[in-house]
Amino acid sequence: MNAIEVRDLHKHYGSHRAVAGIDLQVREGEVFALLGPNGAGKTTTTEILEGYRQRDNGTVRVLGQDPGTAGRDWRATIGIVLQTATDAAELTVRETIKHFRGYYPNPRAVEDVIDLCGLREKVNARVRSLSGGQRRRVDVALGIIGRPRLLFLDEPTTGFDPEARRQFWDLVRTLSGEGTTILLTTHYLDEAEALADRLAVIAAGRIVAEGTPRTVGGRDRAPATVSWVDGAGPHEVRTTDPIGTVVQLDGRGGISGLQVRQPSLEDIYLDLIGASA
């Protein structure tokens, strides 16, 4: 069964078409990343899947149910990590997590979640006193305390330092290893590449490419860049046969600084976004 099943999704605000016909399948147990510039329809799409917004058209099934009409039982099986909440300011970290635990029928243990999210040192601090990155960890803790089958992560590592980001990636891998399906929206392409089994790029309310981080947008077939320096100065060629190019260079001698680069996910992404804009 697919955890998320979307067909021909449409949503507009007035005359603005925020989502203009999206099809999406996320398999159970998969980490799926949704990429796209601000205003592309990412948030609208996610919020429809989370049950926050009503769609205008199309069919949506999330864990087998329509999020527009699903009830408390369904909500107990999803976890949502919000982007901008500043609530619970006067509670301590442990109080907040403990309180949210009481909402769910089959929650994780409070202390496990504290350790998983790296909040051990801050358990007795008021949420108000936390830094932005620590605050996001609490958001993540509240998103997973109910042991969701499907977790929505909306730009989860914004404001994290590089070390915290690596720790967070490990957490996502742990959750994924336990069988949790994860829908991730992010602006960080290295994050999508590190975590996602598959990804889709949204631009102007449509999906412009879909695939694995290695294949999306024809990345695996795109020309590579070979660069080198010889007596005449630096050179760079784009070629679909980098090995052939290197072999040719080998015959010439006097070559230094040889590099062969496959296009990065960022190169592919920017091409996709540029082409659709």
Binding site: A76, T77, L91, H99, G102, N106
Partner: peptide, 30 residues
């Protein structure tokens, strides 16, 4: 294991009253 991670559908949700009283406790504290 996966079995441990997925909630069993037989466990009942906490009642509205219980959740509401728990919310009352944190509302007062806040």
């Amino acid at each position: 294991t996966t079995a441990l991670a997925l909630p069993s559908s037989t466990t009942a949700l906490p009642s509205t009253l219980r959740t509401g009283l728990s919310r009352g406790g944190v509302e007062l504290r806040m």
